[in-house]
Amino acid sequence: MGDGNGERADNPGVVAPPPLIFAGGLAAGLLTNRLRPTPFLPRGLSRALGWPLVVAGLALGLWGFREMRRAGTNVDPYHPTTAIVDRGPYGFTRNPLYVGMTLIYSGLSARANALPAALLLPAVLHVVDRGVVKREERYLEGKFGDEYLRYKGRVRRWI
């Protein structure tokens, strides 16, 4: 979105807030599973995987959030990015917040033992990749140029 003067807004123009994309897919999958329960894991494995994945996702996401705050940049993709963050989890993934949300989604799907939710995860990741990540990357390349391209060359998109 621009400001009405033909200028482009200083943000990546994502299709929707990433937490909403993940929550929407998870809610649809859990609701479908509630209407027609379809387990996909043995009960013990469901319990063993669920909460550790959720905790790992929360820890990674909070660590990434903290590093963005520490660098003084915005976490909200609807606001301008002011710095390239390459410390903490950003040293091994360019998207620790989205990896964290993926772990949380996976953990909740496993804990609920909900096959429909698990099957929707690839679609959710597709929307996040096309509607969020690629837009953010274009925006960061345009805003930070070579600095971002060097970072992008050193650190993988996901893991």
Rank of each mutant, 00 (worst) to 15 (best):
M1L: 14
E7T: 13
R8Q: 14
A9D: 12
A9T: 02
V15A: 09
A16I: 03
P17M: 15
P18W: 06
L20S: 11
F22H: 04
A23D: 09
L26T: 10
A28F: 08
G29S: 12
L31G: 15
L31Q: 06
T32G: 13
T32V: 13
N33K: 02
P39M: 06
R43F: 08
S46T: 04
R47F: 08
A48M: 02
L49S: 01
L49Y: 02
G50E: 01
P52T: 06
P52A: 04
L53E: 02
V55M: 10
G57Q: 09
L62G: 12
W63V: 04
W63A: 15
G64C: 01
F65Q: 12
R66I: 01
R70N: 05
T73P: 06
V75M: 13
V75L: 15
V75P: 11
Y78V: 05
T82L: 15
I84W: 08
I84L: 13
V85Q: 11
R87G: 14
G88S: 08
G88E: 04
G88H: 09
Y90W: 04
G91H: 11
F92A: 11
R94W: 07
N95K: 13
P96M: 06
Y98P: 05
V99A: 11
G100R: 09
M101V: 00
M101K: 00
T102A: 15
T102H: 08
Y105L: 06
A110W: 00
A110G: 01
R111Q: 09
R111G: 00
R111H: 07
N113S: 08
N113C: 10
A114V: 05
A114P: 03
L115T: 08
L115E: 06
P116M: 10
L119A: 15
L120V: 09
A123R: 01
V127Y: 06
V127R: 02
V128R: 01
D129W: 06
D129R: 14
V132M: 05
V133D: 03
K134C: 07
R138W: 09
R138N: 12
K143S: 07
D146M: 01
E147W: 00
E147D: 13
Y148R: 05
L149A: 13
L149P: 00
L149Y: 00
G153I: 01
R156C: 01
R157H: 09
I159K: 01
